[in-house]
Amino acid sequence: MLEGKVVVVTGAANGIGRAAALALAAQGARVVVNDLNVSLDGTSASQSTASQVVEEIRAAGGEAIASGDSVAEYASAQRIVETAADTYGRVDAIVNNAGIVRDKMFHRLTPEDFDAVVKVHLYGCFNLSHAAARHFREQSGGSLINMTSNSAVIGNRGQANYCAAKLGIVGLSKAMALDMAAFNVRSNCIAPLAWSRMTETIPAKTEEQARHVEKIRRMGPETIAPLICYLASDASAEVTGQVFAIRLNEIFLMSQSRPVRSVHRSEGWTAQSIAEHGMAALRASFMPLDTSAQVFSWDPV
């Protein structure tokens, strides 16, 4: 499905990124395997490298090149895209997958923890997508595949920085879909649930948490790769502005924010009338304070 395509995958030394890079290459894509080769919190070196994934792809008969530039800085992100263009002559899809986590309860979160996570996830998505936009416009086509999270679109505890960045990616992705549609460029989000370095941080202190973690262990990162390959291919030419969730054998089309219920008062509202009537009418439609684990509570099949 991807013969002749050139795809950039960030955060591709481990987990979902690595699985995506291998699957894209198996489908015929030439892959730029990007990874900064750092630990999960972004503070130290990792043993897994982009070069190792490139070797795996080449050993299987595919084409790939490694990139060690950071997505968090614009000039560096430009170099990633130029690596694709200079090496293979074009770029057809970007998989914005790079990320770090620094999980803490909100009252313990530091500005440095917040900034570091937002820079890699949200700024990284913007930086790389913006760097690719010129190429997409010139060739009248391209695909932006942006990894969000159920922690963001539904909610989770201890991840305020991560949730803010990942939900920001949903808004950014929709804006890019709208702005770039005139150039046949599509932009979609995937909220994956799979066992990777990111999910290793999920606590398992209670019996309920332990059961949740055990479910996720069954869902390898390779289960996300087919959807990434599809969105990178011409088969998805009419698919844009969507948010998909995936876990094991299930693919979900996620809702996006729309009005749920309204109340009207012809003479206008006061704080008192809002308290007495407005909220009383709306309360039945309030969203519950759920976490993603509570929403996806059944066993995957």
Rank of each mutant, 00 (worst) to 15 (best):
L167I: 12
G28M: 12
P192D: 02
S285A: 15
C163W: 00
D92Q: 00
L253H: 07
P192I: 04
L122R: 07
A19Q: 02
E200N: 15
V243Y: 05
S262H: 08
A194L: 00
V32Y: 07
K119D: 15
S67C: 14
T199H: 02
H135K: 09
E208W: 05
I274A: 12
A245W: 00
D92V: 00
R217L: 11
V263R: 05
S140Y: 06
T43L: 12
Y123A: 11
S39A: 08
E267S: 09
G61A: 08
I57E: 13
Y74E: 09
A225V: 08
E250S: 12
A75G: 13
G62R: 02
I228Y: 05
A85I: 15
H121P: 03
L40G: 01
A25L: 10
S285G: 00
D299L: 12
F296C: 02
V95P: 04
L172F: 10
V260L: 03
L144S: 00
S39T: 14
V8F: 03
I94D: 00
Q242N: 12
Q242M: 11
L2V: 08
N14P: 03
I16T: 01
A164P: 11
I202H: 13
I57M: 14
M254D: 04
E208R: 11
Q256T: 15
R217F: 03
Y123H: 10
S76L: 08
K119A: 15
L109C: 08
E3D: 13
K5L: 04
Y230D: 03
A165Q: 11
P221R: 03
L22E: 11
A132I: 08
K5W: 06
C229G: 02
R157I: 09
A25H: 08
K104R: 14
V8R: 02
A204R: 13
G168R: 01
S173F: 07
E208L: 07
Q242G: 08
G99S: 05
P192M: 06
M147P: 00
M105N: 11
T148S: 12
N156E: 10
F106L: 15
A235F: 03
V120D: 11
S151I: 04
R30N: 09
S292Y: 12
D69L: 02
N161Y: 09
L289I: 12
A191I: 02
A164Q: 13
M1K: 12
E200A: 15
I57Y: 14
T87W: 07
L231Y: 02
R211Q: 13
E208D: 13
L122F: 11
R258E: 12
V54R: 04
V91S: 05
N249G: 07
S140F: 05
A93L: 04
A175R: 06
V81Y: 03
G141Y: 02
V91F: 04
E200Y: 14
S149Y: 05
D92E: 00
G141K: 01
G278F: 00
D113T: 14
R157C: 05
W269L: 06
H130E: 09
L144I: 09
A64D: 09
W269R: 02
A237T: 04
T199W: 04
A66K: 07
E250L: 05
I100Q: 08
S76P: 04
V7G: 02
A59V: 00
N249T: 15
A284P: 10
G124C: 02
